[in-house]
Design a protein around this nucleic acid. Structure first.
Length: 879
RNA sequence: GGGGGCAUGGCGGAAUUGGUAGACGCAGCGGACUUAAAAUCCGCAGACGGCAACGUUGUGGGGGUUCAAGUCCCCCUGCCCCCA
């Protein structure tokens, strides 16, 4: 064995990481010399600093890093930042459970995760790091909140919260278990009304929906999910007059929203949500007890239980009747669990013949079913299968009879508007964004409540409203901030009288709705960012993160962007041009199907026939998202310790396409490590030949002329073809749709051809091959590429780093073949192939094919009835 | 129930967007090197039949369009996601 150094990634990687850091290699370029087209913003969704880096993070950041590195090699000035989504419950829980100050706990976690991240060799500009819990960041979150307030887009109203009656505190939804009990006290959680802050996202619902088609760089399904979430439906509001027991109008009205005004003549009852404010007033004395009991019952149900299709619908009549404005019929007023108070008007009209839920409800309570729409071209619809919910033609609808339902919607809405009993209405499923949280570890809402001045914004120059230290974080007795009198009591900025601070903090989605803007100007102490800085770097060219943020985070970030655009703070409509949603990282999971217990892979003796180590029962084996409780997690640090970051990066990118789930497999990791070792040995061989890269110019620009007048051997031609094929294929794999897995397989192919042909190659051809291989490898395995680059004689100073090279261009001349394999098909089946000149024309190919032995054999001497020639590919002979 | 997606060897996954199915890798088998093992290198490998040349068959199932279908159309089955 030679005494050449072995591939030892650990020492090599930390050496290069230090070198890159000391030479500030990943610093964002300060000024653009050229046009804005030269800048590129690559962004990962920032993590919550839990303290532990998991494989899902690794996959996310490695993908973004490769994209950033490729763009740098392509000559772009790249912004690739990182930060921390640092407010949130876990820090507060740590305080409750272990008495650690949330800020200290969070900063410790950030420090440890930052170190773990750095071991991955990510080309992040750490100078732009931010944490949402630091006051130099949340100061601007507060400033932006005041922008919303000023724009009339922030307001307060009553809304229900989860209240723990034992601990006397508000709970977040995730602190309430499936049975509606507090995670800590175990008490049954109650709904309680509190005055809370909302952002008026519904004011932008149309824009958020209408701009979705512009987002061509987003996965279709994310756009669909957002569209469904916004849920625009066009219909009408219709007013029904309340009548007294004698049937006389009381002047009072109930307004319903419906997408089917064409079915107004089929309304046989009206339903209010149990929470509808008029329920109490309209309930008759006889029904009062029953109605109250029903409301109590419903208040304990979740929304899902109430609205799921397969759950029974329940309701009670409240005794009062209303008049159908279209035909004057008197119909009963009900309350039912399937109607929600905060959608539409909280009241719907019951049309059993043409709505499935109404149909089920009517059958159950023996309410009238009046058909008013019939299928086109038929007479009556039989109601055995349920309601007829499709379009059709109107019957029993007075002067509207015979109209198709589409036209009838318009006509009836117009009639309603003309006669004062309704109007056209666009309704959204999207509701305003409740941003108030009655918690400590969040961004304080910067307003002051004054008895004489009302809600007073904290003046901008007094920001930030800092979180006080020393709050009571025992998780009891209400909001921690509200209990701190010294913090709560302030002078009103307006009148100077005694006033009180708002004690709610913001939903953490507020903090993450603008962090990507702050990275463009992270140290600004006068503004959240300058218009110049955001417009230079944004919108984000490529955003990478998990599909779990497909709706809320991405919708809120889009909402912020549009509001800030309207405030003149930035100059674009959408924050993220391209979005890549990466799949989960799954670990091998063993489960005992009888006991339901998960078994750690370490306890499974024979993975090919896994058995329970105690009972000996045969185990189920499958891949599932890594989690502690399933013992199927793989710690990134351990993988890096064993194989190095480059192997981990290569494995993650090669194992599956980025948007698909990835099954972690130790054997495959080993395989990647072997590939990198092969590359190392390949360079060893070149070092033995004393190949020096230092005098080789840029591949592509010079190689074409360099090799044009030289006679190359067949082996050299093949090697050059492999080199330039790899350039072409990998360039394509990294363009638009990111196919890292096939890009890496092309690297493997190239290295296989190199291993075969390098020995016989002249120095210039060999150098070109190495130069190309290493530059193409650099984004994926940055440490190894840099090391091999150095070993092959590149100057080690900063400008000569492999990461400062240019992405190679394929040389078309190198791709040219003299002969190609022409496939001969007979009646569409491949019957053989023929070596033919690559430039042969159609007629020649046809002749060559007809004369071939293959044709003789399969056509048995008869001339084909038809011949299809695809030049460069095949000839199909049809007998 | 509505909308969307997916289905390819033992496994992960490739396939100019209609043109040689199974690239690349993992696992497997055979060989070389070694006292031996590991590592490494070379070779084989969808299934079926055959000593072999070769043939048949084959991309969840069924039908269709086409000279040619993993790819396009229709129906069915199974799994996943979102919305109800």
């Amino acid at each position: 064995m030679s005494d050449a150094p072995r591939y030892q990634p650990q020492a090599l990687e930390s050496r290069w990481q230090q070198h890159w850091e000391s030479t500030a290699q990943h610093r964002t370029p300060a000024k653009l010399d050229g046009s804005c087209g030269d800048s590129y913003y690559a962004l990962s969704m920032f993590p919550y600093p839990s303290g532990n880096l998991h494989m899902g993070h690794v996959r996310n950041y490695v993908i973004t890093d490769v994209i950033a590195r490729v763009q740098r090699l392509r000559g772009k000035q790249v912004l690739h930042p990182m930060g921390w989504d640092a407010f949130g419950l876990p820090a507060e829980n740590a305080a409750i459970e272990r008495g650690i100050e949330p800020g200290i706990w969070t900063d410790q976690n950030i420090a440890s995760m930052r170190e773990q991240l750095k071991r991955l060799g990510l080309s992040i500009d750490w100078d732009r790091e931010l944490a949402t819990c630091h006051s130099d960041y949340y100061r601007w979150t507060q400033w932006l909140f005041l922008q919303f307030l000023d724009a009339g887009l922030a307001y307060q109203r009553d809304a229900s919260v989860n209240w723990d009656p034992i601990d006397q505190t508000v709970l977040a939804n995730e602190q309430v278990d499936g049975e509606g009990r507090s995670w800590r006290s175990g008490a049954l959680v109650e709904k309680r009304k509190l005055r809370q802050w909302f952002l008026k996202i519904t004011a932008y619902a149309d824009q958020l929906l209408d701009d979705l088609p512009k987002l061509e760089g987003w996965p279709e399904r994310v756009r669909t999910m957002q569209a469904n979430w916004i849920g625009r439906s066009t219909g009408a509001e219709l007013h029904f007059e309340v009548v007294d027991s004698s049937g006389a109008g009381t002047g009072e009205q109930i307004t319903v929203f419906t997408t089917r005004p064409d079915t107004i003549f089929g309304v046989s009852y009206l339903v209010l949500a149990p929470e509808h404010p008029r329920v109490a007033g309209l309930t008759t004395a006889e029904q009062a007890v029953q109605v109250q009991a029903f409301c109590d019952l419903v208040s304990r149900q979740s929304e899902l239980e109430r609205t799921a299709d397969d759950k029974p619908k329940r309701g009670v009549p409240i005794g009062t009747r209303v008049r159908n404005p279209a035909n004057g019929a008197l119909i009963p007023l009900w309350i039912a669990d399937y109607v929600l108070a905060d959608y539409g008007t909280g009241a719907v009209m019951g049309v059993p013949a043409h709505d499935q839920r109404d149909f089920v409800f009517a059958r159950q309570y023996e309410l009238a079913v009046q058909q008013v729409i019939i299928p086109q071209g038929s007479d009556e619809h039989a109601f055995e299968g349920g309601a007829w919910t499709e379009a059709g033609v109107l019957i029993h609808s007075g002067c509207f009879d015979g109209l198709p339902s589409g036209e009838a919607k318009r006509a009836i809405t117009e009639a309603a508007a003309g006669q004062g009993w309704g109007n056209a209405k666009v309704q959204f499923r999207l509701r305003d964004w409740l941003i108030s949280r009655q918690r400590y570890w969040g961004c304080p809402i910067p307003v002051i409540h004054c008895e004489s001045c009302g809600v007073v914004p904290v003046p901008a120059e007094q920001l930030p409203v800092e979180l006080p230290v020393g709050a009571n974080l025992e998780g009891k007795g209400g909001s921690p901030l509200a209990q701190l009198e010294s913090w709560v009591n302030v002078d009103c900025p307006c009148c100077g009288k005694a006033a009180k601070r708002e004690t709610d903090t913001m939903d953490t989605f507020m903090c993450s709705s603008w962090y990507f803007l702050r990275y463009s100007d992270p140290h600004n102490t006068d503004l959240p960012f300058t218009r110049e800085a955001v417009d230079r770097w944004l919108p984000v060219d490529q955003y990478v993160g998990g599909i779990e943020h497909a709706i809320l985070h991405l919708l809120y970030a889009r909402f912020f962007t549009k509001v800030l655009r309207d405030r003149g703070l930035l100059g674009f409509d959408e924050p993220f041009i391209h979005l890549l949603t990466q799949g989960m990282v799954q670990g091998i999971t063993y489960k005992n199907p009888h006991s339901g217990k998960y078994i750690a892979p370490g306890d499974v003796v024979d993975p090919s026939a896994p058995r329970d180590p105690i009972s000996g029962e045969v185990l189920e084996t499958f891949y599932e998202k890594m989690s502690k409780s399933k013992y199927n997690g793989v710690d990134p640090a351990q993988v890096i310790d064993k194989y190095g970051a480059d192997t981990a990066r290569m494995f993650i990118l090669f194992k599956a396409p980025p948007e698909k789930d990835l099954e972690w497999d130790d054997a495959d990791v080993e395989g990647q490590f072997r590939f990198l070792q092969r590359l190392w040995r390949l360079v060893d061989g070149a070092c033995a030949r004393d190949l020096q890269l230092s005098d080789l110019g840029r591949v592509g620009e010079q190689s074409a002329t360099q090799f044009a007048n030289t006679t190359l051997t067949a082996s050299e031609l093949e090697l050059r073809r492999a080199v330039h094929t790899a350039i072409a294929e990998i360039s394509e794999d990294l363009d638009g749709e990111y196919q890292f897995n096939t890009a890496i397989s092309e690297l493997m192919k190239l290295s296989n051809v190199m291993a075969e042909h390098l020995e016989a190659a002249s120095a210039p051809v060999a150098k070109e091959a190495f130069h190309t291989l290493l530059v193409l490898l650099a984004p994926f395995a940055p440490h190894l590429a840099e090391e091999l680059w150095l070993r092959l004689g590149a100057n080690p100073d900063n400008n000569c780093s492999i990461h400062a090279q240019s992405w190679p261009q394929p040389d078309p001349a190198a791709l040219v073949r003299e002969t190609i394999d022409l496939v001969i098909q007979v009646k569409g089946k491949m019957r053989g192939s023929l070596a033919v000149p690559a430039n042969a024309d159609k007629a020649t190919l046809e002749q060559l094919a007809l004369n071939s032995e293959i044709a003789q054999k399969w056509l048995e001497g008869k001339p084909p009835s038809r011949v299809i020639v695809v030049p460069g590919k095949l000839v199909n002979l049809v007998p």
